Amino acid sequence: MKSNYSVLYAEDDENVRKNYVLYLENFFDKIYEADNGLDALNLYKDKKPDILLLDITMPKLNGLEVIRKIRELDNTTPIIVLSAHSHKEYLFEAIKLNLVDYLIKPINRNEFKEVIENSIKRLEDESLNEDTKVVINNKCYWDSRSRILFFKEKIVDLTKNERILFELMLNKKNQIVKPTEISSYVWNTKNDVNDASIRNLVKRLRKKLPVDIIDSIYGSGYILSY
């Protein structure tokens, strides 16, 4: 039976990926595919899938590197690792990253089905107790599930990068966010984005926000507080 949840599946072997995607269609209406770790990370930021299925060995970023970056801000999204590696160092590192499971290839179909169903059940149980509304003031709130900002019950139109930046700052509320953090998280590059581009993005976001909640901290970065 299909759920309303979405899944991101990252695997660099196209034949393996297509085979698993066919099976995942039994459980999910929305399936996002990536053949490398960098695309997987960008899809996570853009689409915010409910469940992640990640291979360990991928080009550009391996699965554990992707998870580490995600866990810097999100420690709750269910992540399942599918790997041909059973070495202890991988297992120990995976445990630190709060995974749902670490499945060794070739994966038993019944075991895989059980892990998927348990992950969906976990999301359903959480949704019963979770309020996805982040209230900024009595007229403005952020819906963390849909990733939409509302003001007077109308949608505030944010671009992809503006939305990613706003999420970053919400997750770092009352903390100084350095330009290097913004560069790494929004543009996902190891090379620093120039300061002018960062200032321009922050300026555009400020203009669209119906409340004045982002302050510049000279020489340090930006802070969101309300």
Rank of each mutant, 00 (worst) to 15 (best):
K60H: 13
V202N: 07
I120V: 10
L158C: 07
T132Y: 11
S6I: 09
N75P: 05
D13G: 10
L8S: 01
T76D: 12
P59E: 12
Y32M: 09
I213F: 03
Y102T: 15
D101A: 14
R163M: 07
L97G: 08
E33D: 09
K48V: 08
S216W: 00
N108A: 06
I182G: 00
Y226M: 05
G37R: 12
V186A: 08
V7M: 05
D74Y: 14
S83E: 06
W142I: 07
I198L: 06
Y90R: 06
Y5M: 01
Y141M: 15
S119G: 04
A94W: 04
E153K: 15
E93F: 11
Y32R: 03
K207P: 07
L43R: 07
L64H: 10
R145T: 09
D101R: 10
A40M: 11
L201W: 07
R199D: 07
L158E: 04
L209E: 04
V21S: 03
M58A: 01
F150A: 05
P78Y: 07
K113I: 06
N110F: 11
L165H: 03
V193G: 00
K113R: 11
N174G: 00
T57W: 00
K173D: 04
Y23T: 14
S83N: 05
P210T: 13
N36R: 10
I70N: 09
N161S: 11
N171Q: 11
E124D: 09
A196R: 00
V135C: 03
K47E: 10
Y222H: 12
I107V: 15
V81N: 04
F27H: 12
N42A: 02
K48Q: 08
K154R: 11
N19E: 10
I182C: 05
V115R: 01
L8A: 02
E93I: 14
V202I: 10
L158W: 03
E130T: 15
I80A: 05
A84H: 08
Y141R: 09
K18G: 00
V100H: 00
V202R: 05
Y218C: 02
I213M: 02
N4M: 10
D50V: 15
N75Q: 11
V134W: 06
Y20R: 12
P78D: 04
S146L: 12
I107A: 14
I80Y: 06
F151C: 14
V66H: 02
N200L: 14
Y226A: 01
